[in-house]
């Protein structure tokens, strides 16, 4: 399959890229690793008049520790590079990365590309939601920081303006009282998450659960924070019954997706199961 013809522009600098998407004139799409965009163009599910290639902008690559302890992930960092970086110390990220695509896809697919593409079953999106990440977006107008909760607005839709690109994803610094994990039920052929649950738990000195961030993907129209699960976990004991009762709220208020791979009822049931498993795994990481 061959995509429809498009113009191609390789950006030498971030400023070049920002100008190219600000100028507009037809449909301009940013090309990062291309692992989502190129299949869409080939299948002609999407089209573009011009592709602006930012895949090799060095200034958008790499993972660095900020002075305040936070971790800044350059948007053009590939999944493989992320897995080899200090981001692997976040249990939730270490769990999720090997489930994304396959080796070849992880060698080219980028963190920024995944976030901007906003697949409703994105594994990384759930991780970033549970970690309370921030998205740094830039345009010729300037830079802004967008909390990831609220960034995903619908299937393949985000809070980004058309002239903005993602430069960085920032994760909070590691905490001794936090444990995290990701658990997913994958469609066996495609590997896409039918249900993915990302959990970060915070535990008090006496071992009780102080609070938790819980995010699900593959379940609703976009990855979301499961606030009802979080409320039930805050102050909860760690008994199996309490964790299961909290996880049962995984789809509260969500219009659960049903398709040929997993009907609405099955997906709803599995959302609770995988949320419980992710909570248990996150707690287990704290010992």
């Amino acid at each position: 399959m061959i995509p429809a013809a498009f113009d191609y522009q390789r950006s030498a600098t971030l400023d070049d890229a920002l100008k190219a998407i600000a100028d507009g004139g037809g449909t301009v799409k940013l090309l990062a690793g291309g692992q989502s965009l190129l299949p869409l163009l080939k299948l002609r599910l999407g089209s573009a008049d011009r592709l602006v290639d930012i895949g090799r902008l060095g200034e958008l690559k790499g993972v660095r520790r900020l002075p305040d302890g936070r971790l800044a992930i350059g948007a053009m960092t590939t999944y493989s590079e992320l897995a080899a970086s200090s981001a692997r110390h976040y249990g939730v990220v270490a769990d999720a990365l090997p489930t994304i695509g396959d080796v070849q896809v992880r060698n080219r697919g980028t963190v920024g590309g995944a976030v901007a593409h906003a697949d409703p079953a994105s594994d990384l999106a759930a991780c970033f939601l549970a970690l309370d990440a921030e998205i740094v977006a830039r345009s010729v107008r300037g830079e802004r920081t967008i909390p990831v909760d609220g960034f995903f607005t619908g299937p393949f839709s985000t809070a980004l303006a058309t002239d903005e690109l993602i430069t960085e994803v920032r994760l909070p610094g590691p905490r001794d009282d936090a444990g995290s994990a990701y658990a997913s039920l994958e469609q066996p052929a495609s590997g896409y998450a039918m249900v993915g649950a990302a959990v970060v738990v915070f535990v008090a000195g006496d071992g009780s659960i102080e609070g938790a961030n819980v995010a699900l993907t593959g379940v609703g129209p976009h990855p979301y924070r499961a606030r009802a699960v979080e409320a039930a976990l805050a102050g909860s004991d760690r008994s199996a019954a309490s964790l299961a009762a909290a996880a049962a709220h995984a789809t509260d208020g969500i219009d659960v997706v049903g398709d040929i791979h997993a009907g609405r009822e099955y997906r709803t049931a599995m959302a609770a199961v995988y949320t419980r498993r992710a909570i248990e795994a996150a707690l287990a990481r704290l010992g």
Binding site: Q35, L38, K42, D53, R108
Partner: peptide, 27 residues
Amino acid sequence: CDTSQCGACTVHVDGMAVKSCTMLAVQ
């Protein structure tokens, strides 16, 4: 498959395995 699933088109680009059906020559 030509849809980034089967891996028959796998080559190395700068030492990394990639699917050459899902990469533009210009890249």
